[in-house]
């Protein structure tokens, strides 16, 4: 998994993460309240312009989140063309496209740490019921960290089994992978201890590693 963040110091990069997420949410709500083709098409143009010009991102950064769902956008359009009408289909597709590109702009210009800090802030009212927001942030960050790692290890187990002549590789990787992951989890726990995860003052927020 590639990091989606593209370092930079454009205006868009410098807008606070909370504001960017709020604007993204507002855009989402606004797009679903309107059924106007010009408005929705204008939104696509706007977010692309923000991404390319204001945030100075390359096309690839904008398309990274669109490409995997292109097929579904096509299906959606086809569905509407067959069942309703092409205009409704275009609105539905452009609406999603605008949101996907906007989300790409936000993730490409905002560090995970900053997004996580927003989640922590939003979760801070939960402190009264004993939830530690910093813990929620840590869990998110660790999930992002360990997903590609576990995927790598799974690939390695698969290779090892293939090398030993396993023809069908299926559920067979689960047990060795699980053993590896559990063993690592024990060390990760120790590492969190050694790096002071429990020393964190209850009100800490993730530091901005940003410059």
């Amino acid at each position: 998994m590639q990091s989606l963040y593209r370092p930079g110091n454009s205006l868009v990069h410098r807008v606070p993460a909370g504001l960017k997420l709020a604007l993204l949410a507002a855009l989402g709500v606004g797009l679903f309240l309107t059924g106007s083709l010009p408005v929705v098409a204008g939104a696509v143009v706007l977010v692309v312009a923000v991404g390319l010009l204001a945030a100075r991102l390359p096309w690839s950064a904008l398309l990274v989140q669109v490409r995997p769902v292109l097929i579904w956008l096509a299906v959606l359009l086809a569905f509407h063309v067959l069942v309703t009408d092409p205009r409704t289909g275009a609105v539905a597709v452009l609406r999603l496209l605008a949101l996907l590109v906007a989300a790409a702009v936000v993730t490409a210009t905002t560090r995970v740490t900053a997004l996580v800090a927003v989640v922590e802030r939003l979760a801070s009212p939960l402190r009264v019921v004993g939830v530690r927001p910093a813990r929620i942030g840590l869990v998110i960050a660790m999930t992002l960290r360990f997903i590609p790692l576990v995927a790598d290890r799974a690939a390695r187990v698969r290779e090892a089994q293939a090398a030993r002549g396993a023809s069908r590789v299926g559920l067979g990787i689960v047990v060795p992978l699980l053993v590896q992951v559990l063993r690592m989890a024990a060390t990760v726990g120790e590492a969190l201890d050694a790096r002071g995860a429990d020393d964190a003052p209850a009100r800490r927020r993730l530091a901005r590693a940003a410059s």
Partner: peptide, 18 residues
């Protein structure tokens, strides 16, 4: 097993933040 944040700089900040 010791690197707990997704990117290099974020991971480095973890200990001192704590």
């Amino acid at each position: 097993a010791q690197i707990v944040h997704p990117t290099v700089a974020e991971d480095l900040a973890f200990g001192p933040t704590n």
